[in-house]
Simulated assay, not measured.
Amino acid sequence: MEYITLIGILIIVVGFALKLDVLAVVIVSGIVTGLVSGMNIVEVLEILGESFVSNRLMSIFLIIFPVIAIIERYGLKERAAYLIGKIKNASAGKVLCIYSVVRSAASALNVRIGGHVQFVRPLILPMSEAAAQKAKGEELTEKEDEEIKGLAAAVENYGNFFAQNVFPASSGVVLIQGTLVGLGFKDMTLSMISSSAIYIALISVALTFVQVLWFDIKMKKGGNK
């Protein structure tokens, strides 16, 4: 009968499969799991409340969503696309090259300026699409548009992941040092690890340039057909 306490997992699987409200599914799963485990409803609600309060900082990111909705409502995407369309010789690859450098530099300095929701979707993506359309000289196909979306998301990930360890006090560097010290490398310092990460960040930016500029070449060939 102990397996009955796993019913919460089943509720989550079914709820997600039916595309029900995520928050409601998780809450219902938690309540049901607590009740079948022998707890009363008051105890379950107390645990849920304590968990929410202790992790309340994790919900701050929700404030971002209405802000993004407001700036999109007032035409940020359209203005960004319009401005980039006025730049001579603009292309999606060039826009993404610039962003890869900026994003990597920001990560290396532990400055959080990026993010898929708050930066790429409302700003970098429409700029890249407008630049690609300008370079091609005609409307983008659905396949080309989807490829630009993937590239914009990829550049964000590259800059964030491969450059963050350049900052000596980042959590990743601390974790690496702790692991290495535990394995017997007592002389390994944070600065040694972060300085090694510089090469990885530079290689990442170089390969990003190759990927996005190759997309530009394909776009020009397609536009000339």
Score class of each variant (00 low, 15 high):
1 M>S: 14
2 E>V: 12
4 I>C: 01
7 I>Y: 01
13 V>P: 04
14 V>T: 00
17 A>R: 11
18 L>R: 13
20 L>K: 14
20 L>S: 03
22 V>E: 08
24 A>P: 08
25 V>I: 14
28 V>F: 14
29 S>C: 12
32 V>F: 13
37 S>L: 12
41 I>W: 06
42 V>L: 10
42 V>H: 03
49 G>F: 09
50 E>N: 14
56 R>C: 11
60 I>S: 12
63 I>K: 00
66 P>N: 07
68 I>K: 07
70 I>H: 03
77 K>R: 10
79 R>P: 02
81 A>F: 04
84 I>S: 07
89 N>T: 13
89 N>P: 08
92 A>H: 01
93 G>V: 09
101 V>D: 06
103 R>D: 02
109 L>M: 05
111 V>G: 04
113 I>Q: 02
118 Q>T: 08
120 V>M: 07
122 P>C: 13
122 P>M: 13
123 L>V: 13
127 M>P: 06
128 S>W: 01
133 Q>L: 00
135 A>F: 00
136 K>V: 00
136 K>E: 03
139 E>D: 13
139 E>C: 03
145 D>A: 09
147 E>D: 08
147 E>V: 00
148 I>K: 05
154 A>D: 04
156 E>W: 03
156 E>C: 01
157 N>E: 00
159 G>C: 05
160 N>F: 04
165 N>P: 12
165 N>F: 11
167 F>S: 11
171 S>N: 13
173 V>M: 09
173 V>I: 01
174 V>P: 09
174 V>H: 10
174 V>M: 15
175 L>T: 15
176 I>H: 13
177 Q>Y: 03
179 T>Q: 13
180 L>M: 15
181 V>F: 07
182 G>F: 11
182 G>A: 11
185 F>I: 12
186 K>G: 12
187 D>W: 05
191 S>F: 10
201 A>G: 01
203 I>E: 02
203 I>V: 15
204 S>D: 11
205 V>F: 11
206 A>I: 14
209 F>E: 03
216 D>S: 09
219 M>P: 02
222 G>R: 01
223 G>T: 01
224 N>M: 13
